[in-house]
């Protein structure tokens, strides 16, 4: 990996080169970072500022980090920009999401291969026609991670929205009809889960030439009816986190087998680089 030229602390995440590994988990919730880091070897907190909470440790001897993004595209884009400047090049979003197909059971995992750009931030990077697609190797590694942990996982499309309550209570919004119609279209297109950061992260990653993917714990139902107590009992964050960790181990092994470290900006370091 090229040594980043930037030595001063990054403005929002308050991190400098050497503080994070090449591989970074991106949860939304700052309160989830310590829990995720507990799956690393030798985790330590390296910074906390605003919604950005960062821990670094190792997996298979490789430095890995977790940085929370806060909720939504704007703060997530800032996190990815600043982490990339200090040397990270592979990002895995982990978090919770809402079900968008009836055949999905609460507690299933969604591996987000593509994301609906139902948000504003990514338009500051690329026209809306550009697909928000995850890196193939990261996505296949997460699927292999799910095989190893035995988690029930689906590879598919996520809806990345800017309004949590627009999804959960669309009927009370002035644009209710539009929200209902578009939700129905996303379901018809086969979207599997609704969350708030993947599209921004994938488009920013494409623009920066880094790799990104995402895995979500899926809750609820497409019609917003409440979960039964049995369904709620299936929601297990530990399954999500163990699978995400296992997926990253698969990726680290694959990167090592491929002979190392694709540099950013080179052919095979691009977000969707050489096979």
């Amino acid at each position: 990996m090229a040594v980043p030229a930037v030595e001063e602390l990054q403005h929002h995440v308050q991190l400098k080169p050497g503080d994070v590994g090449r591989y970074v988990f991106l949860p939304g919730d700052p309160g989830r970072c310590e829990k995720i880091a507990s799956y690393f070897e030798g985790p330590r907190q390296v910074a906390q500022n605003r919604e950005y909470n960062t821990y670094t440790g190792t997996l298979l001897g490789e430095p890995v980090s977790v940085t929370s993004t806060g909720i939504g595209g704007p703060s997530s884009a800032i996190a990815m920009e600043e982490l990339t400047k200090i040397g990270a090049d592979t990002f895995i979003r982990v978090g919770t999401s809402g079900a968008m197909q009836e055949w999905i059971e609460p507690g299933d995992l969604g591996i987000v291969w593509g994301a609906i750009r139902d948000e504003g931030t990514s338009l500051h990077y690329l026209p809306v026609e550009f697909p928000a697609v995850a890196n193939l190797d990261v996505t296949l590694a997460l699927r292999e991670g799910a095989r190893r942990t035995g988690a029930r996982a689906h590879v598919g499309i996520g809806q990345s929205k800017d309004s949590f309550y627009g999804q959960h209570e669309p009927g009370r919004m002035p644009v209710a009809q539009r929200l209902h119609d578009r939700w129905a279209a996303w379901m018809a297109g086969g979207a599997i889960c609704s969350e708030m950061e993947a599209a921004t992260l994938y488009i920013v990653a494409a623009s920066l030439g880094v790799r990104a993917g995402g895995i979500m714990l899926i809750a609820g139902h497409p019609d917003q009816r409440p979960m039964t107590p049995e369904e709620s009992a299936r929601m297990d964050l530990d399954v999500l986190l163990r699978t995400a960790i296992e997926g990253l181990k698969v990726l680290i092994e694959a990167d090592r087998a491929a002979g190392g470290t694709p540099g950013r900006g080179s052919a095979n370091g691009r977000a969707n680089g050489q096979a």
Binding site: W113, G114, A115, I116, R117, D118, V128, E129, P131, A132, V133, L136, T139, L140, R143, V155, I157, R182, A185, W186, A188, G189, A191, A199
Partner: peptide, 13 residues
Amino acid sequence: HYLPMEFPAVADI
């Protein structure tokens, strides 16, 4: 004519 423009045209993995 099928889906709003925000929906990604992705291949089957």
